[in-house]
Simulated scan of single mutants.
Amino acid sequence: MSMTLTAEMNRPLPETVGLVRRSVADTCGHILGMVGTAVDITVVEVHHASV
């Protein structure tokens, strides 16, 4: 499975990608009944966090 992501810099990018990856894998397992062996994420844009 692969996806693209636009991220905000309110936390380190590797942490954000890890959270998204885990969330996608959990959703596939719990809601769709699918087991994902890999979730490839490409960050296509980064925004500065707004205050």
Rank of each mutant, 00 (worst) to 15 (best):
I31H: 09
V44I: 15
G29L: 08
V46H: 03
S2Q: 13
I41H: 01
H30N: 13
T42H: 11
A38I: 02
T27N: 05
H48T: 12
S2Y: 09
S50I: 07
T27Q: 07
R11L: 12
M3R: 04
L19V: 06
S2T: 05
D40K: 11
T4M: 04
M34K: 09
S50N: 11
A7M: 04
A7P: 01
T4N: 15
V17S: 01
S2V: 03
R11S: 09
V39Y: 01
D40H: 06
P14W: 07
R22N: 13
T4W: 04
V17I: 15
M1V: 14
V39S: 00
A49K: 12
T6W: 03
M3F: 09
G33H: 10
S23G: 08
H30F: 05
S2N: 14
R21V: 01
M34E: 12
E45R: 12
H30T: 11
V44F: 00
C28R: 01
A7H: 00
A38E: 13
A7V: 13
S23Q: 08
R21L: 01
L19Y: 05
P12Q: 09
L5G: 00
D26R: 04
A49I: 04
L5R: 05
P12D: 09
M34R: 11
A38W: 02
V20C: 11
V44W: 00
V39R: 02
E15S: 10
V44Y: 02
S50P: 02
